[in-house]
Simulated scan of single mutants.
Amino acid sequence: MIERILFVCLGNICRSPLVEAVARQRFAEAALDIEVASCGTGGWHVGAGADGRMQEAAAAAGYRLDDHRGRQLSVADFAHYDLLLAMDCANLRDMRRLAPHAIERTALFLDWAGVAPMLEFPDPYFGGQASFVASVKLAEQGVAALIERLRAG
């Protein structure tokens, strides 16, 4: 049974905090009692808030990221979380390198949720505001599919 999910991206200021916020809200609406959190594989943004462009796009869709503070993935996360979902293949590779003993609990977020044909969640960081808005839509789609898979068992 999955009780705790960690969403992982590179810096923990765009994709993973967004997916965490969408999942927290949608899981509550779906009456799923699952703890969610997010982090990054890199430590550049530890303690920093979510990217302002992502905060703006998320807020427009009804999700709050203003309390988010970036943190870096640690070996202890693999003991705490039942499922660790990476936003892209580079994140997944870094996760598996850090904890090869936990490979079976790691996967790509969109792939594990069953969002075909998407495997990776594109990083909006170097794009314009439209890429951040598109990220919100993709996060909502991914979390909806994730809920379906979790309910199906």
Rank of each mutant, 00 (worst) to 15 (best):
I103Y: 11
M87Y: 11
L110Y: 02
T106P: 06
F109A: 08
A107K: 08
R105S: 14
A30E: 08
G40I: 07
E20K: 05
P117Y: 02
R71I: 05
F7T: 09
R53D: 07
A37L: 00
W112A: 02
G42Q: 09
L18Y: 03
I13K: 12
A113W: 09
V36G: 11
L84A: 02
A134M: 03
V115S: 10
G47L: 04
E20N: 13
A21D: 12
M54C: 10
D111Q: 15
Y125S: 03
G114C: 08
P117I: 03
C39V: 02
A79F: 12
T41M: 01
L32E: 06
R24W: 02
R53M: 06
F27H: 05
D66E: 15
W112R: 05
D77W: 00
D123W: 11
L65M: 11
G62S: 05
D51Y: 15
L10C: 07
P122D: 00
F132E: 04
L110M: 01
G49V: 07
G49A: 14
M118Q: 14
G52T: 13
A86I: 07
V36M: 05
A60I: 01
I13T: 11
A99L: 05
E20V: 00
G128W: 09
L108F: 01
A37I: 00
A57R: 08
L119Q: 15
G70M: 11
D66P: 10
F109E: 06
E56K: 15
H68A: 05
C14M: 09
L10P: 03
R64C: 12
A48R: 12
L98S: 01
G49W: 05
L84N: 01
V75M: 03
L108W: 03
Q55S: 08
R97D: 08
R97K: 12
L85G: 05
P100H: 09
A48S: 13
A134N: 13
D51M: 13
Q55N: 13
R26P: 04
V133R: 14
D33K: 15
E35P: 03
A130I: 03
G70C: 12
R64K: 11
M87H: 12
E56M: 08
P124V: 09
L10Y: 07
P122V: 01
N91D: 10
Y125L: 11
A134Q: 14
A59I: 00
F27C: 10
D82E: 11
C14P: 08
L73I: 10
A57F: 12
E20I: 00
R53L: 07
L85W: 09
